[in-house]
Design a binder for these strands. Structure first.
Lengths: 247, 247
DNA sequence: GCATCTTCTTGACTCAGATCAAATTCGGGT
DNA sequence: ACCCGAATTTGATCTGAGTCAAGAAGATGC
């Protein structure tokens, strides 16, 4: 395990959290320099996942959590009978794999929708380091909790919104997340197919397509295949939670 | 803070996790006696919540997590526009409040559906004790993770099951949970209204009622208002994941 | 550059579950 | 025991989204 004596190990440098531009989004903001140093050793290694490849598959044993550095992935829950549903879309700074801690087995497939790069964080190491750094521990709990909160939002969406509201909420969510990461919040590339959007929103791909066309006709957005531009964000916001039909 | 010198403080005794019959279900299984002792001090106090009362409300600051000792509660997520949806039903041994760690504010209302009793676990104390007891720490992570896993299941249910499947899955879930707690798995009391079931499953109360009647006509269950008896559990199991229509 | 496969759009029709509307039963309070 | 509001059941009708189908537009590979 001895690291070869080199002045700069370029690989290590690239992996280090302390030099990572994502560290405010990712697991470890607001740590002292010394703590940051300790965290650097936590991040085992980076891994590249090509478009279409699996980061992990349902059923395999958990060894690490994965923090996304670049790229875009989806997670798919699998039902015993073969049905499959997109449970989330994940981008830079998101942490994946937390659903597997309970059973020690991944519950969902994680598939890259574009070439992506992730940092592996062995759970054992994260747990032992968070025993030493209370702020890291608390931050990890916050991240798990936010995942629960996100899921509650999706449950609300699936359980009580009509198709237009779902899609509007989806677009606003993407917009907000791209914006938070320094990308344009009103113009972006949809990395997933209509079918994947539909699966995530509990709709059929035809409904997704129709609803997008409808939004475009209303002047809310302009879509050209996967390129999307939000032209009236207030209009979309009004749509969400407007048609309070399904009481 | 000095505890009055008495041989037995009956209140403390009742609160102690080490003597609690739930401790295998609840947060702290498999600890040494010494560790158990430390955990006892963690559980701040017990609280009684009368039927219809709130354990906590959306928006209030988090101070504690709550482990249910007895009773039955629901949690309701609130949409800004006043829409409300049941996010879960919680019983003996379940832990509530984890959704609030992320923002430090509760996201949902927790309402007792029958007179209930909970143990308050201050998050700060749980975090500091779990820094000392690795198995407690890991178990807490597992519980949060299981909550995420549960939510994935609900997303699958809401996003891709038809009404009969949803209700069958719901009944089987209740059955399994009652069974795991030593109650009858095939005969129990529904503590929630049809409307609450519907809200949880993304259906209208009429649909819930009709579907229950339909199940009864098929000989799968027998319902008499809130009293439910499962007469053909395999039949229900077949129903879930049978009609794989919504691909 | 062409062929092929996948993804997307749009239209016509159908149906599961929502909505509206009674009638009935239950449960808590006096 | 009786009353009253809430919860449940059941029926009739309506509708939003699913299903089926066919063509168009993009991607991918040779």
């Amino acid at each position: 395990m001895a690291i070869p004596l080199r002045i700069i190990d370029p690989d290590k440098l690239k992996t280090a959290c302390s030099t990572c531009s994502l560290h405010e989004l990712c697991l470890f903001p607001g740590l002292s320099t010394a703590e940051m140093k300790a965290v650097d050793h936590l991040v085992d290694r980076r891994r590249v996942v090509k478009r279409g490849d699996y980061l992990f598959r349902a059923g395999v044993n958990l060894h690490s959590l994965y923090a996304i550095r670049t790229g875009f992935l989806k997670s798919c829950v699998l039902h015993e009978d073969g049905r499959e549903q997109v449970a989330g879309f994940h981008m830079m700074g998101d942490l994946m794999g937390m659903d597997a801690i309970g059973t020690n087995q991944h519950l969902c497939d994680a598939v890259a929708l574009e070439d992506s790069e992730v940092c592996e964080i062995p759970l054992k190491d994260l747990e032992s380091l968070s025993r030493e750094i209370p702020s890291l521990q608390h931050h990890f709990h916050r991240i798990m909790s936010r995942e629960i909160a996100r899921d509650y939002g999706i449950m609300l969406l699936l359980g009580s919104m009509r198709s237009e509201e779902r899609l509007a909420a989806f677009l606003l969510n993407l917009s907000q997340r791209f914006g938070a990461r320094g990308y344009s919040a009103h113009e972006f590339h949809l990395r997933m197919t209509r079918e994947e959007i539909g699966s995530y929103l509990g709709l059929k791909l035809e409904t997704v397509s129709r609803t997008l066309s409808h939004f475009q006709a209303q002047g809310l957005i302009s879509v050209q295949n996967k390129h999307l531009r939000i032209t009236n964000i207030e209009g979309l916001q009004e749509l969400v939670g407007q048609h309070g039909c399904r009481t």
